[in-house]
Nucleic acid binder design. Structure first.
Lengths: 199, 199
DNA sequence: ATCGAATTGCACACCGGTGTGCAATGCACA
DNA sequence: TGTGCATTGCACACCGGTGTGCAATTCGAT
């Protein structure tokens, strides 16, 4: 049996992502384990939430790091790094809903702290994109990255809420939409050229 | 004393918007009233939440209706109706955070039901805009309106989180951003012309 | 000054979730 | 077969929020 602790953490990310008010019992049974067992690995509910957040954050940081490498390679490639990031992130996006969902509520403070480095990196990436002229300046970099972030989850939510039926090619529409969103205000020809260079 | 019931409802919108887990006691004291009194007007917490949601929805519907009138006036004026809507909505947007925040959680089903007509109207408005060629077709109308909606709150959240200090002209950036977002993919000259016609 | 409605202050029962203690049970490995 | 560790199955105490009952009070209107 793969480390029980890991399985609990995995399942907790999923369960709490769907319902932030889920209790230890819900997590436990979803992990195929008894409530008491969970307390064997985590001292308290808050402890579990914290651990889970740390895991999610470190996973997402890893993905971001890979995409940052793309950015470092060429110059003015911030848009490609973004597209790359979205693409890598997408299969996992539902998993990270928990970060969005738990940010409000009792743990908001701690979670925001854990999340800060990611948001910072993202904002910097956008900033570089703006400086290089591939991203629009209609919004300050930090807000712009927030908006992009929220758009990712808005699309993912829609994708999720219509379940198996009527599912659309969410990634197919998400990636171009987000990059377009970032490129708002950039003169058309340049935007188009940049968009086509990527293929 | 203005109708106590109304004051409770108002304050509940605010309090629950900030923290969806707030209890009856929090609402009561924020309303300058004792817990017992709240139960005099609402049979239960769920009753309060329901009533509060209905109020918020009907308020927002009213705003939307005014802007729809703008749309009906001219043809192909969906973009103006949107801009108008955002502008009217903005001063109240923090008030309606409660709808976003409570959509998850135990009352999700009911709230979504109450919210459906609004989302439908919005989606139709976007659809009309797309048909008239002023809005982009990069996303299906319903998703696009969701994304726009989420962007509104993303910007508003940012505005809120930095409090009084460092406050930027949030409406100033929000309105053009949202409309630009909707117009993604529309040929530049046309978009620009439409953007300038509004002034 | 008095009537009446709204509000208060406290009592209580109830519920569901948390966190702990401990003995019993499984199960893998030697 | 025995040893050790993880897991289980209860038991329990505790807490905080809900919802109710009822008598005491405030306070405006007449």
């Amino acid at each position: 049996m793969v480390e029980t602790r890991d399985r609990i953490l995995d399942v907790a990310i999923e369960v709490l992502g769907k319902n932030p008010d889920a209790g230890m019992a819900d997590v436990a049974s979803a992990a195929g384990v008894v409530r008491r067992t969970v307390y064997g690995y985590f001292p308290s509910r808050s402890g579990l939430v914290l651990a889970l957040t740390e895991r999610a954050v470190s996973e997402i940081t890893a993905v971001l790091a890979e995409s940052a490498a793309v950015d470092d390679a060429g110059d003015a490639a911030a848009d490609e790094a973004w597209a790359d990031f979205i693409e890598r992130l997408w299969p996992l996006v539902h998993r990270y809903r928990v970060l969005v969902v738990l940010r409000r509520g009792e743990f908001g403070k701690d979670i925001h702290a854990l999340l800060a480095p990611i948001e910072k990196t993202l904002a910097e990436l956008v900033q570089r994109g703006q400086d290089a002229g591939v991203f629009g300046r209609h919004l300050p970099a930090d807000i712009l990255s927030q908006v992009a972030w929220s758009a990712v989850f808005a699309i993912a939510d829609d994708d999720l809420s219509r379940g198996a039926r009527g599912r659309r090619d969410a990634l197919g529409v998400a990636a171009p939409t987000i990059t377009s969103l970032l490129m708002l205000g950039v003169p058309e020809p340049r935007a188009r050229a940049l968009a086509e260079r990527r293929s």
